[in-house]
Design a protein around this nucleic acid. Structure first.
Lengths: 253, 253
DNA sequence: CGAGGACTTGAAAGCATTCAACTGAGGTGG
DNA sequence: CCACCTCAGTTGAATGCTTTCAAGTCCTCG
């Protein structure tokens, strides 16, 4: 079962995942691509488990992940944490920037990441000067919302194993579009505790659910390497449809 | 305990909740207000429990709710339904419009609603001609996302009673900003089954949780009339902080 | 080699679901 | 005008998924 078509899929990671992502939504002009490239220069390398923005911060601009995986999360008074999104290379947050807005959640790296900060000024130039970029950014906001809704469905109505299977499916497809998957798997830097806080489960139960998936021969997960042994079955378990990601013809089988 | 300040809060429903909402985010010019008023003319009256858009539809423009309450939802193959958002007067969907985009979820009325459809053309004029409107619309998209994240936290980490309490708090604050609350309550058109599909619970358990809230003297719910008997306690139970709604100085105590 | 974090496993307890039956209110048609 | 139907809400009991608590293993890193 070929998950990727080598004639159209990149062999390795895409150099500018952000540009590739936007270009996939709306065909960008060459000037727009150049401007985006310029804007994403000067990305910093940041270690794992570091907060990029905290609740209550007033960000000066937006954030772009170039390498690694980050997450958005919220904390409760009792210490419980809910992860509300994963950011993979090419993903951004708070580009629909608005002045005097306090963060109502936090952003942190999961693995080590390369992170570019995009100032409000740069952003304004980008949007004002390049209508295609503006349109593509609106589309990313739309996809972000659709993804949040799908996660709500996931947590609200699926069983533990289904939730995890769904997350694995989504990450596979998203990472695939930026060339960060192997033929049948990818690097999963989250701990089981992270997965628990993502899926609204206890880490013990995540552990048992993963074992169930392993026992059924659907996945193999050793350390941080996730191998999908039976993509069709994983999709069936998760009831996964990629339509909410709005990838168009980039969508995997 | 005065929930509303009669000197600053409207006594009745706001005539143009959409304009009031946007104006609260970004001060609108008079021309912008006039244009918005024009755009929201011709709202249709639609009965309860009617689909406005279905999954797979390609909407021609956006939707604005002028009266009543609607919801966004997704269905699973097994018939399970997850409500992912409630739309109250002044709320919109799909104004961050993008051509050739298929709906990945559905929109339906809960109560009878007055609904205005805003064409892509009108929308483009509005955004192109009125920067304040464009900025305010970006802000609504931001708040929509923040609300989805809060719901994720709600379903993912709170107990049944807490989830319901949180929803009641959120709706109170949102309805209050458009003048649709009484001093200590509001009209709640959702059935217990709707609440169940919102909170990721069974309707039986919603019923029992409501009774628990009633027994504690926190709320009174008769038919479609919700009365909040103890706002402080309801907020405490829900661990409700309105910051994610980004209402600024409009926020209730 | 020690320490700590991640992962695993077992058993008990609990919150939530399912099934099933019943009440009550609202609307329809004879 | 009332019987009847339907849907929303209520209640009880049994089941079960998930959590919690606790202890122990494995692995990595300093």
């Amino acid at each position: 079962m070929a998950l990727t078509d080598p004639t159209t899929r990149p062999a390795g990671p895409i150099v500018h995942p952000f540009i590739a992502k936007l270009d996939g939504f709306v065909a960008l002009t060459e000037e727009a691509k150049a401007a985006l490239k310029q804007a994403s220069l000067g990305a910093h390398l940041i270690g794992p488990r570091i907060d990029l923005l905290r609740e209550g911060d007033m960000p000066e601009g937006g954030i772009l992940i170039t390498e690694g995986i980050a997450c958005r999360y919220k904390h409760r008074a009792n210490g419980a944490r809910q992860i509300t999104a994963y950011l993979v290379p090419g993903d951004t947050c708070d580009l629909e920037f608005h002045p005097f807005r306090e963060m109502d959640d936090a952003i942190a790296t999961v693995s080590a990441c390369r992170v570019a900060r995009i100032s409000a000024a740069t952003l304004n130039e980008l949007v004002a000067g390049h209508p295609t970029v503006a349109q593509a950014l609106r589309m990313t906001a739309l996809v972000d919302k659709a993804t949040l809704r799908e996660w709500l469905l996931n947590i609200g109505s699926r069983s533990a194993m289904e939730r995890i299977a769904h997350l694995f499916c989504e990450l596979f497809v998203r990472l695939q579009t930026v060339g960060l998957t192997a033929e049948d798997g990818y690097v999963l830097p989250m701990t089981q505790s992270d997965l628990a806080d993502t899926a609204g489960l206890s880490s013990v139960h995540v552990n048992r659910s993963l074992q169930s998936l392993r026992r059924q021969g659907v996945i193999d997960l050793k350390g941080k390497n996730l191998t999908i042994l039976d993509w069709a079955r994983l999709k069936t378990i998760a009831e996964f449809k990629a339509n909410y990601l709005h990838l168009g013809d980039r969508a995997a089988a």
